[in-house]
Simulated assay, not measured.
Amino acid sequence: MADYQGEKFKEFLKTRNISVIKAAEMLGVSRNTVYQYFGSSSLTRETVINIITHFNTTEEEVFGIISKKPYENARIIGELPEENPENTRFIEISPGRYRMSVPLVEYQAKAGYLMEYADHTFIEELPRHEITVSKYHRGKYIAFEVDGDSMDDGTINSIPDGCIITCREIKRDLWQSKLHTHKYPNWVFVHRSKGVVVKQIKSQDLDTGVILLHSLNPNKDLYPDYEIHLDDVLQIFNVVKREF
């Protein structure tokens, strides 16, 4: 494998007048990770693919390396059209293995998301989060950064403060049926007054549209179960992956 000098990536950003903050947003990583790239003498192949894909460039332009197969084992699957209006992207990194990139709502952006969740431009400008998947998923996906410890009970089932959860939206026309809590025990509700909340579902009343939400944290004085009505809910997602 060829050595990919992080210093060359740093110089590439300078030539394009791209800040570290902007680079981190485009790559879907933290600023600290970008600085780690700068100091690396041998970036991983996956990182190189991520760089040349999201900056719409080539290995030669960034690293001075000419390759007959610019992406070698990686194949850009691209953006799904109608099923993924919020720009979910896939890159094949090996047969049957894909990097799935989705918009990320960081905890400080949750208030803005509540107002702009339907604005395509707002969603496009969000930073991105990537996970590895084994197939090409359809549907609308988004990731949220968790704040607070209401879903932390100290066990492997916790969703602790700072955790990134990747979620799939449940279409509104399916809300009239029972939400399947066995396969997906954790849910995100975008609520008009409570904001973006991560909870489990304790019970559902299909006749009244009332859902009883449950926090994993055993301190019920701080985190009691409470009811919401579907009329006050803007979006519902099930949590498909947690990353700590």
Score class of each variant (00 low, 15 high):
residue 190 V to W: 09
residue 88 T to Y: 02
residue 172 R to M: 06
residue 11 E to R: 11
residue 216 L to H: 08
residue 139 G to V: 05
residue 189 F to A: 02
residue 144 F to N: 14
residue 76 I to Q: 07
residue 91 I to P: 01
residue 34 V to N: 01
residue 165 I to D: 04
residue 162 G to I: 12
residue 55 F to E: 08
residue 84 N to Y: 05
residue 231 D to L: 09
residue 103 P to I: 11
residue 177 S to E: 15
residue 147 D to N: 11
residue 240 V to A: 02
residue 90 F to P: 00
residue 138 R to T: 05
residue 225 D to W: 13
residue 115 M to S: 07
residue 195 G to S: 04
residue 192 R to T: 14
residue 236 I to F: 04
residue 14 K to S: 06
residue 143 A to G: 02
residue 14 K to T: 12
residue 160 P to Q: 08
residue 130 E to I: 06
residue 168 R to W: 03
residue 132 T to G: 00
residue 242 R to T: 15
residue 142 I to F: 11
residue 118 A to K: 12
residue 156 I to V: 13
residue 231 D to F: 02
residue 180 H to L: 06
residue 83 E to V: 12
residue 109 A to I: 12
residue 104 L to I: 09
residue 130 E to W: 14
residue 50 N to Q: 07
residue 134 S to I: 00
residue 10 K to F: 13
residue 63 F to C: 10
residue 109 A to P: 00
residue 144 F to L: 07
residue 55 F to M: 05
residue 185 P to M: 08
residue 39 G to H: 06
residue 59 E to A: 11
residue 171 K to N: 06
residue 126 L to I: 04
residue 190 V to E: 10
residue 210 V to L: 10
residue 80 L to C: 06
residue 192 R to C: 10
residue 176 Q to R: 13
residue 202 K to Q: 14
residue 98 Y to T: 14
residue 187 W to V: 07
residue 200 Q to W: 09
residue 138 R to G: 03
residue 74 A to L: 03
residue 218 P to N: 00
residue 217 N to C: 11
residue 233 V to G: 03
residue 178 K to Q: 14
residue 19 S to L: 06
residue 165 I to A: 12
residue 148 G to S: 04
residue 187 W to Y: 15
residue 47 T to M: 01
residue 7 E to N: 05
residue 129 H to K: 07
residue 38 F to T: 02
residue 183 K to R: 13
residue 169 E to I: 11
residue 200 Q to M: 13
residue 240 V to G: 09
residue 216 L to M: 04
residue 78 G to H: 10
residue 120 H to A: 05
residue 32 N to P: 02
residue 30 S to I: 14
residue 115 M to D: 09
residue 102 V to Q: 05
residue 200 Q to K: 14
residue 189 F to K: 12
residue 39 G to I: 10
residue 62 V to D: 06
residue 16 R to I: 05
residue 52 I to H: 06
residue 161 D to S: 15
residue 70 P to K: 05
residue 100 M to F: 03
residue 82 E to K: 08
residue 152 D to Q: 02
residue 128 R to D: 06
residue 243 E to S: 15
residue 200 Q to T: 06
residue 174 L to I: 09
residue 167 C to M: 13
residue 59 E to F: 06
residue 103 P to C: 12
residue 47 T to N: 00
residue 202 K to T: 00
residue 201 I to G: 01
residue 209 G to M: 08
residue 14 K to F: 07
residue 57 T to A: 09
residue 96 G to L: 08
residue 135 K to W: 10
residue 42 S to G: 09
residue 174 L to Q: 11
residue 132 T to L: 00
residue 205 D to F: 08
residue 198 V to I: 13
residue 57 T to D: 01
residue 81 P to N: 12
residue 242 R to C: 15
residue 67 S to D: 01
residue 60 E to I: 02
residue 16 R to W: 11
residue 16 R to K: 15
residue 228 I to Q: 08
residue 38 F to A: 01
residue 210 V to F: 08
